[in-house]
Design a binder for these strands. Sequence first.
DNA 1: CCTGAAAAGTGAACGCC
DNA 2: GGCGTTCACTTTTCAGG
Lengths: 156, 156
Amino acid sequence: MLRVDSIDQLIVSQLVADARSSYAEIGKVVRLSAPAVKRRVDRLLDRGILRGFTAVVDAEALGWGTEAFVEVHCRGNISPGQIRQRLEPLAEVVAAYTVSGAADAIVHLRAADIHHLEDALERLRAVDIIDRTVSTVVLSTLLERSPAPEPHDTAH
Amino acid sequence: MLRVDSIDQLIVSQLVADARSSYAEIGKVVRLSAPAVKRRVDRLLDRGILRGFTAVVDAEALGWGTEAFVEVHCRGNISPGQIRQRLEPLAEVVAAYTVSGAADAIVHLRAADIHHLEDALERLRAVDIIDRTVSTVVLSTLLERSPAPEPHDTAH
DNA sequence: CCTGAAAAGTGAACGCC
DNA sequence: GGCGTTCACTTTTCAGG
C-alpha cells in the first residue's frame, strides 16, 4: 500500500468539502492539471481511501427529527456478525458499533418523532440476542464533521 | 414550505448513493429530463433538504484507526453553545450531541491510535466546563448508513 | 501535460395541465 | 403559474499523443 502524499490529502479535503467540484477546480487548488487530478482521484478510489461520494441530507427536513444512542447488552457470547445481521433490517439504525466496556454495542437510531423512536426501540429490544438496552435521546446536534485527511501528531 | 414528493425522494436517494452521478443519469431513473432534475436538485439545495455533497473517506486508511464515544458531564448549567464552542477546536471531535439523561453531551472522537486517543481525551478533560468523562472505545463498526428519504410510518 | 471529440452542465424559450 | 421539455451554448470529462 503506497503513501498518500500531501497533494492527495488536499484533493481529499476538497472532495469532502464539495464532492461535485470539477477536477479543474481541484487542480487550481493543488496546482495540477485536471487530468492529473482525475488520475489521483481514480487511484484513491481504487485503493479504497475514497469510498465514494454522497449527498448530505438534512435528516430533520426529511422527517427524521429524533435520534438516540442505545447501549445494547446481549445474552451470552455473540459474534459481531450476528449482531450486524439482526440490526441491518431495522431502517431506524443509522450506525452501530461493537464497543469495549459494559455494553456489547452502541446503536445510533433515527426516527420521525418520539413515538416512532419508541416503536423502533421496541423492535430493537425484541431482537432475540438482545438482553437489555439503555437509551439516550439526543436533544441537539452540536457538531458533525469529517475527520481531517491526516491525524496531526500531537504527541512528541 | 412545500412538500418533498416521491420524485424528490428518489433523486435524494440517487444522490446519497452517488453524489457524482449526472443529472441525465438520475433523470433516467426518475423518468425526467436532465434540466428538470437539475431544477429539483437546486430547489432541494435552496430549501436546505440537501445540505451539500461530500466524499466518503476510509478513516482507517487515512490513519484514523481508533474511535470512541465519550459521555461528557459538565459543571453547573452550561448552554449547548458554550459546549459547542469548546469542542470545535479539538480536531479529534467528529460529532457531538447534547443528550437527555445523566450526561450532558455525547462526543464522538476519532484518533490515529490508542495513544492519540488518550491524548485527545486528556485535552477534552482539560476543557474548563467539563467535570468528568466516561469513554467507550469502539472495537468495530457494524453498520453506517444514511436514513431513508422518508420515514415509513409503522405506527397506525 | 496537451489536444480534441464526446458528454454533462446550464440558461432560455416554449408548451401543457 | 408551476413544472417539464427541447434547444443552444459553455464547460468538463477523458482517451490518446
